[in-house]
Nucleic acid binder design. Structure first.
Length: 203
DNA sequence: AACCCTAGCAACCGCCTGGGA
DNA sequence: TTCCCAGGCGGTTGCTAGGGT
């Protein structure tokens, strides 16, 4: 027997919120404040799960939210904090006023993660990728070809595209399997075996 | 013009944690 | 000490818009 659901699912709406639902939720919270999410839907006349209300408010309706693109500084800060904290999105979000954990998580997964991969950095460990599996290598090459097609390679990437990171070597495990380092787009600044993000330009 | 693919984002799900009884 | 409940969190899914073929 599993955990009982947080609310009576049979009588709750799911999916995208309507304007009317948003208005109801905002009006209720303005009048009564946040808290007691479980009882809020009923009190506000919403056919929604309390969790759903909380999420909608926190991620979308809160008046102090900063919508729009992430700035260069925000990107940098996210990468730095992620290297220290890992996937602690809520903790990272506290350092970015107006941004939510969900927003940061999405931004990481769709933008930053890919950006790091294209630079030959493992987004999970923040270390240079030493021996990418073949499928990764294939996707990397694909990405590279795409960039070249689009002609979007930045000058700094172009000038350093062929320069591998000299601080890292393939582990001495099996020469048969050992692959050459990935074609880093830029010289990776490393300090005590950890990437120095202050020296990496995020765009 | 129609179809397919991909990226981006909102929302959901299930687990974890802390506090109160 | 144990159990229950509500809130919080991270991972994942599903929808939609836009671009490419």
């Amino acid at each position: 027997m599993g955990r009982s659901p947080c609310c009576e699912k049979a009588h709750t709406n799911k999916g995208a919120w309507t304007k009317e639902e948003d208005d109801r939720l905002v009006a209720y919270i303005r009048e009564h404040g946040e808290g007691c999410w479980r009882s809020l839907p009923k009190a506000a006349g919403l056919l929604r799960c309390g969790k759903s209300c909380r999420l909608r408010w926190i991620n979308y309706l809160r008046p102090d939210l900063k919508r729009g693109n992430f700035s260069h500084d925000e990107d940098e800060l996210i990468v730095k904090l992620h290297s220290l904290l890992g996937n602690k999105w809520s903790v990272i979000a506290r350092s970015l006023p107006g941004r939510t954990d969900n927003e940061i998580k999405n931004h990481w997964n769709t933008h930053i993660r890919r950006k790091l991969l294209s630079r030959g950095i493992d987004p999970a460990t923040h270390h240079p990728i030493q021996a990418p599996p073949s499928d990764f290598a294939a996707s990397f090459v694909k990405e590279e070809v795409k960039h070249q097609k689009e002609g979007v390679l930045r000058q700094d990437e172009e000038t350093s595209a062929t320069a591998p990171c000299e601080h890292y070597r393939c582990p001495d495990l099996n020469l048969e399997l050992c692959m050459s380092p990935p074609p880093f787009h830029q010289q990776l600044p490393v300090n005590n075996g950890v990437l120095d993000y202050r020296a990496i330009e995020m765009k």
